[in-house]
Design a binder for these strands. Structure first.
Lengths: 356, 356
DNA sequence: TCCGTTTATCATATCGTTTTCACACTCCGC
DNA sequence: GCGGAGTGTGAAAACGATATGATAAACGGA
């Protein structure tokens, strides 16, 4: 009605024009080998001539497939998520499936507000969840619906979920990543290394802290609780302002630190600002490492040494995984980790009174 | 097949359970007043009980409406576009239409690659185009299809398009915005004000330069070509690196300038970096104004005085406009401008030898 | 009692595909 | 010249909703 499809051609019209049944046309479109080459050719010409495209609604109805995947998650907040979504979009476009986005601001409540309806109405074939804490009740719902669910960068609020084990997840190997960064700092001669963390109840923060401890342990440097600071700033604990605040706190408490490892780039920038305001130069007086390698890392002055996650790859891989589940193909690894790489830029250097 | 919809209930099942015809159930769902209160109640209870949701594919087929809008454009590159898309997504969610995204990297060629098919298959009801240069051939196609098209932040490569006049556009009032910024700098006492521009063939760059000239003229300051520099850096002329490069060029050529107005925040940050490397302090030696008020403006140190565009509002408005077109409602203004606001932060101050 | 009007419900057609199954035709060997 | 295999084709039934016009029931007025 509203979209008066005046000049739109249908399969039936093509069939009529070609003097064949519409079944034949459908078979041509779906590349059915039982159609003779000449018939196929004749139909193809007509399709071109009338600029015919199959109607996806009709197709969806009979196939019960929308050729669309949906992503629920945190969005537009940071370049971090952007990069993942860019990867998802790329792969979707490449494989000709549409991508619908639903921003639930990383909150389970917001997620609950609308996923039920969207799933119920079969608006999408598969769901990618990006950094939204999941609870078992929700996961059960997905399993019951038989709707593929991929979890990207899982966050669990309270310990590991019961069902999470059975659901495919993709995540960066944070722990190993931080290990690399701290090992690098140690190799430069640093011994007094601080850690600027996010909320301790988040899994990623626990993982990253573990990487820090691993590196200290392997280099015989005792772990000291006073060298770690946790941001609980609301609503987002990983911002520049949060970094400024807790960074200052840590520096005041432990003025001897010669290097700081931060769990996000924006926090690291906040920390650098705090240091500058205290008259301490980066990297001459103190070295700083970020996390994420978002483009603000390059924007900073000095540019940030940071940990690069293959976000684009992770985004693409999540779509590939969704596809595999849709076509019921066996999936080799249910849980996949992605290597984190250390990117060395200007914000790190040897400590001041290093003998090296 | 692939999505075995085992436990999914249909309208027919609900009807059977209630002992009414499926027409009746449909009418209940669509709030048709011809249904008696008690029947309605009975049906509603069953709907709840079976957790029934109407299948959108079936509905789309008969209504020829997908309840989905698509956005084609530049994406994930900068916080600037993010903010617009966030607005679009917000309004979509609010009005319960789905949003499909297609990243064509701001290029008309990429756009041409896939819009034809997506339109032909009727995957979406309306299109929002974000900062993609349009040519008449494409616009004609949309008009022929009778598919609502909204253009956000139009960019024309070669002069104004012929059909662009008839198509709804939303854009920020760049010219007035820059006027405000330059006027502000003048009010601080600046007289030697430079302008760091993007490629001169882009409409936005022409508009912004015009605002700069307007302000100078109204304050009896002669316009001098040497005070303007154009970035032609590929592939993106508005980056920090571009700003660094052309900013340095301008400073070297015109060392007397006491203030610089830049056409993007990231460029402004690049310019600041160049200044710092030359030993000139911001804002003590030279004032800097950015454009866009993306979050990097706050991240910068000193934080950037910049021009704020109501990006969120613009995004929302574009969806509202699409809705109006879809329901054939009359639209009052085909071309809408959005006010640009000056945000004063730390990167601007009085010139050094100001008498004020 | 009969008829007209309103009210509530239903039977049926429709949207544009895919899919199944039956049919017709050709070709071949016996 | 007759069954059987192999090929192409088409009629008809889904898929799950909306929309239209018909029908049955209820009611009031003459």
């Amino acid at each position: 009605m509203i979209n008066g499809s005046k000049s739109r051609s249908t399969l039936k019209q093509i069939a009529k024009f070609c003097g064949v049944s519409h079944t034949t046309v459908s078979m041509v479109i779906n590349q059915n080998p039982r159609i003779s080459a000449e018939t196929r050719e004749k139909v193809m010409v007509a399709i071109k001539k009338f600029n015919y495209y199959p109607n996806v609604a009709a197709r969806s109805l009979v196939m019960s497939r929308t050729n669309t995947i949906g992503i629920f998650g945190t969005m537009f907040d940071s370049p971090y998520y952007n990069e993942i979504i860019r990867g998802i979009e790329m792969e979707c476009r490449h494989s000709n499936v549409d991508l619908k986005i639903y921003n639930c601001n990383g909150s389970l409540e917001d997620f609950n507000d609308f996923y039920d309806r969207i799933l119920g109405e079969r608006r999408i074939d598969a769901v990618i969840v990006l950094s939204v804490p999941m609870e078992d009740a929700v996961l059960e719902r997905f399993q019951k619906e038989d709707l593929p669910l991929i979890i990207l960068q899982p966050v669990s609020i309270e310990g590991p979920n019961h069902l999470l084990e059975k659901i495919p997840t993709l995540q960066a190997e944070d722990r190993k990543g931080v290990y690399k960064a701290v090992t690098y700092l140690i190799s430069l001669g640093h011994k007094k290394i601080g850690f600027v963390n996010g909320p301790e109840h988040l899994k990623i923060c626990q993982d990253r802290l573990a990487g820090y401890r691993d590196a200290l342990r392997d280099n015989n440097i005792p772990y000291q609780e006073q060298n770690v600071v946790y941001s609980h700033v609301k609503p987002d604990a990983f911002t520049m302002d949060a970094g400024y605040q807790v960074g200052k706190e840590l520096i005041d408490r432990m003025p001897d630190l010669t290097a700081l490892c931060c769990v996000s780039d924006t926090m690291a920038i906040g920390v650098m600002k705090a240091l500058r305001h205290k008259g301490r130069a980066v990297p001459e007086d103190i070295s700083i490492v970020g996390f994420d390698d978002t483009y603000v890392a390059r924007l900073a002055d000095p540019s940030l040494t940071t940990l690069h996650q293959p976000l684009l790859e992770m985004g693409k891989a999540s779509v590939t995984l969704a596809h595999a589940f849709l076509s019921k193909k066996p999936v080799e690894h249910l849980h996949r980790g992605f290597e984190v790489e250390l990117i060395i830029r200007e914000s790190t250097g040897k400590p001041k009174n290093s003998k090296k």
